[in-house]
Write a protein that binds this DNA or RNA. Structure first.
Lengths: 336, 336
DNA sequence: CTGAAAGCGCTAACAC
DNA sequence: GTGTTAGCGCTTTCAG
């Protein structure tokens, strides 16, 4: 079954194919009558426009690339959904690639997306260094970064991670905790660096020492994170509160705690970051730092489309994080 | 910054651009020396092949469309990840569309994907009827359906939903439950029909009546499902076990139960379906019917690529579901 | 208002 | 081995 092209339609309509093209793109200089006739004919013949061919001449494909670490992570899948919906409403499509946090895959994904002639790229980079390479690769192609894993020189939209780290840390000290650990994300992540910084600031302000546990970069999946939490909890019983780099990791801590017989929040207060939807489940009920993921996705698309349409400015949007209090942190009487 | 094309490279190399094309696609009749020279030059000039242009002549874009209800649903995001990884390993890219369970959106998404000249389409349809329309639209385009929302006439990969419903129902009766409700998915879903059927069969076998609660098709998000569960639980205290159409819905039941002060599993046993990753969280610990989602995604891609590459057979792959026992169902002494 | 024709970047069949 | 050329399906001047 051959695809029906603009030429086939033109032939049946008894006009030149240039006319069909113009009718379809609603050119003003075509009579309403012909337009109507041609459109009906297209419908009838089952004509499907070929965007690739159009892209060739218009130098634009209406396709946006999206590179994320892992869509199966609810944090990213929530964002991905919002991105797809927003983009579609504006006539763009989304080509997704997952990097599984490999900088090589990330670079390769960017290359392949470029080959597909995407009009722009939204990326949540693995590290600032990998982002720099992607930026160079992309040249003047519209590019928007989500998060803080970049070294500047690009439009980005993020949340105030230092502030989030600070708010979280302060909340815990205000509850009376003194032995607080921040269990971090991968050391190569700038986002992690910023959240840690905010946490440290809050600790300093309260005169607490604040333990920071780092997650080695090769530490990949949840299970291994759970092990990390396990080791830490087993070795360090005096900690009364843990602030986790992300909700996902907090779930790992929960698991480890449960395996060690530590009750949350009775024996251990736990605070997450990201406020993924599962944090609000009744049995999880995780207190978390929330940032506006949907807004983030939407803004990323809007900034990108603006760039695609000619806006050359570089924007830096920082969303305000917010503490969502649920049931995993409890106050401690300030003893002594 | 103009993109550098095959012509630019040819000019710099002092050869015709046909030669460059052949060198790049590793044609045997080109001398190794020229190939090497041309490739180095491409590298140096930052040449990026234009897949759209290639697609025009080769009639293939190496892009696969994926239509799912909602990637932010962990069930689909797990599958989506597997699909993307599998496809990428075979040189294909994924263009995703979310339907949010709207049949109109679904159709529109399919149309738009066709315009993008995808080589094939993987879809998890909203209803058998909507699938039929998509099938018609796609004509001879390779198409693979995930799940049971189809009326045949296509390659599909699914899990044995009748069996899953049966296994789940049987498990509950074997635990001694007699007052069991199946809280279903949307009535327009064939998957739901099959799971319900399996459930009924198990009930009949055990001589239980088995209550089936249907979810009206316009009932969309989790919150409303939670309301449904709420109403049901409030009105029907004597039920001792609930088998939920999906884990997501089971989480809604959990929420409702918790709001009504019903403890799980002490007051109410709960069984889910899909075994999403969050089912295994320590605090959730949801007993569930598992099917091999990753395998499903992988097979869908493999079947599709086989079709793209010429295999014309129609395949029906049915994966075997499996009961994963965790902590939300308890045995009841067979009183009286 | 509409037709003719050039060309977007690339591949492949045909020359030499 | 390599050059030449005809399209792939479409948009867009330039004529008329």
């Amino acid at each position: 079954m051959k695809r029906v092209t603009i030429k086939d339609v033109a032939e049946r309509a008894g006009v030149s194919y240039g006319t069909v093209s113009r009718a379809l793109s609603d050119h003003p200089e075509i009579s309403e009558a012909t337009k109507r006739r041609i459109r009906d004919l297209c419908e009838e013949m089952g004509y499907v426009p070929n965007m690739a061919a159009r892209g060739l001449v218009k130098q634009s494909t209406q396709v946006i690339g999206l590179i994320v670490p892992d869509v199966s992570n609810p944090f990213f899948s929530e964002i991905a959904l919002e991105i797809e919906m927003t983009a579609r409403a504006k006539g763009y499509h989304i080509l997704v690639c997952n990097t599984t946090r490999s900088t090589e895959w990330e670079y390769e994904a960017a290359e392949q997306l470029l080959r597909q002639q995407i009009d722009g790229l939204i990326i949540s980079p693995v590290t600032p260094e990998s982002m720099a390479r992607v930026q160079e690769l992309c040249g003047s192609l519209p590019l928007v970064c989500m998060g803080d894993n970049h070294n500047g020189g690009c439009t980005y939209v993020s949340n105030d991670n230092v502030r989030g780290g600070y708010i979280g840390g302060r909340y815990l000290t205000q509850l009376g905790h003194r032995q607080i650990a921040f269990i971090g994300g991968r050391t190569t992540s700038n986002t992690n660096r910023l959240r840690t910084e905010g946490f440290r600031r809050a600790m300093a302000e309260a005169g607490c020492e604040g333990i920071v546990v780092e997650c080695p970069p090769e530490m990949d999946d949840n299970r291994r994170y759970n092990e990390l939490a396990h080791q830490f909890l087993a070795a360090r019983p005096p900690v009364t509160a843990i602030f986790s780099y992300s909700d996902r990791f907090a779930l790992g801590v929960m698991q480890a705690a449960s395996e060690l017989g530590l009750r949350i929040p009775e024996d251990l207060s736990l605070l997450g970051y990201d406020n993924i939807v599962y944090a609000s489940l009744p049995r999880i009920n995780l207190t978390s730092i929330s940032h506006h993921k949907r807004t983030l996705g939407r803004m990323a698309v809007n900034r990108l489309i603006a760039r695609i349409e000619g806006d050359t400015a570089e924007y830096h949007d920082i969303l305000e994080p917010e503490l969502i209090i649920r049931g995993t942190c409890r106050g401690i009487r300030s003893s002594l």
